[in-house]
């Protein structure tokens, strides 16, 4: 029921990650904003330690 309630009004989307969904929604006239995000990179321990010191 709550899902149906949400779709009764104008659909507004915040899309996180792959911009494909955002683009498709925009093409269909849906208001959508894109948040560029991707999972953190897995790094070797020694590089993580160095980055803590320099960044």
């Amino acid at each position: 029921m709550s899902g149906m309630y949400a779709l009764r009004g104008e659909l507004k989307v915040i899309n996180v990650g792959s911009s494909h969904f955002h683009d498709q929604l925009r093409r269909q006239g849906v208001r959508s904003i894109q948040v560029n995000w991707r999972p953190p990179v897995e790094l070797e321990d020694d590089l993580q330690d160095i980055l803590k010191e320099v960044l």
């Binding site: 070797e44 020694d46 590089l47 160095i50 980055l51 010191e53 320099v54």
Partner: peptide, 14 residues
């Protein structure tokens, strides 16, 4: 870039 960062750490005593 990883190689360079490791060398940087050595060079600057990290």
């Amino acid at each position: 870039f990883k190689r360079a960062l490791r060398h940087y750490a050595q060079e600057y005593g990290i």
